[in-house]
Design a protein around this nucleic acid. Structure first.
Length: 273
DNA sequence: CGCCAGGACGCCC
DNA sequence: GGGCGTCATGGC
């Protein structure tokens, strides 16, 4: 990972990352595109940390107004810059379908997000669409001065007091997740370190967390790259291209492969959003 | 108006 | 243990 520092900005000349694909692929919901000229720019938040990033037409990745200390201590981890995605995609390319998927959306990197923020975000995501998911999370954070609320803060709410979110039937699930976490009945840090099946069960003890949401929390919020969220689109991929099962050589990074496959199958089905 | 959105629950058998 | 109606909300 080569980087340079210019005018308080950190610049990566060969990031192996596509900003649009990474920040607008449905893994994180708090990044907003504020410019798409020759420099594509997003501003966003991760718990209480905010950042503006951009990518030039030549691919340079720029983190605006961050110190080297913040970069190395926080954002290298968030953008998973310590992982060699080029090598990962080279391995994936042994498989024909995965190879095509990597060529289509190979600029996606798996963000290392916060588990609590992910849990709440993906509970909201169920039977919902991305613009509306973003809207609900916007209203939630706006309510706390643009911070993401702590479990203890959210645990003080009730489905009735959360009507401002307009999250529908999901409000009661948010309350259960918050109160369980605040009480310590759900310990996300402990779950992150559990064997995967045990972690799945622990997450599904929360009302409103089923197989899909549990898998998303494991993958996006705990960086368990073997987690493999299956929705209607991935079901189609499995049925059409992997009738005999997903290739074992990719099992340890199945979740990252899933990201490429998800966007690939949607693209060839005529879906782009 | 009906249909769908990166699902999960409750109830049925 | 699989099948099915239901659950809010908003965009099309």
């Amino acid at each position: 990972m080569d980087y340079s520092i210019k005018n308080k900005n950190i610049i990566l000349s060969e990031p192996d990352l596509d900003l649009d694909e990474t920040l607008d692929c449905g893994q994180a919901f708090r990044w907003k595109k504020i410019s798409s000229d020759y420099e594509c720019t997003y501003t966003g938040r991760f718990l209480n940390d905010s950042l503006t990033v951009s990518q030039t037409s030549r691919g340079c990745f720029i983190l605006h107004d961050v110190t080297e200390e913040e970069f190395l201590g926080k954002w290298v981890d968030y953008f998973d810059l310590g992982t060699d995605y080029t090598e990962l995609k080279r391995q994936f390319s042994e498989d024909e379908t995965l190879s095509k998927a990597c060529n289509f959306a190979g600029g996606i990197r798996l963000l290392r997000q916060n588990s609590w923020e992910c849990l709440i975000s993906f509970i909201i995501s169920q039977n919902n669409n991305i613009p509306r998911i973003k809207g609900i999370i916007d209203r939630l954070c706006e309510h706390y001065d643009d911070r993401f609320p702590e479990a203890e803060e959210l645990a003080a709410e009730t489905p009735d007091s959360l009507t401002y979110l307009r999250s529908g039937f999901r409000a009661k699930y948010l309350c259960d997740a918050a109160s369980r976490t605040a009480q310590g009945l759900t310990d996300l840090n402990a779950i992150a370190a559990m064997p995967i099946d045990e972690a799945r069960s622990a997450l599904k003890a929360i009302k409103g967390v089923g197989p899909k949401v549990a898998e998303c929390v494991l993958l996006f919020g705990m960086h368990r790259t073997e987690a493999f969220p299956v929705d209607v689109w991935i079901k189609r991929v499995l049925a059409e291209y992997y009738p005999n099962g997903f290739p074992a050589f990719a099992a340890q990074n199945a979740g990252i492969a899933q990201q490429y496959l998800f966007h690939y199958i949607r693209s060839i089905s005529g879906r782009t959003e």
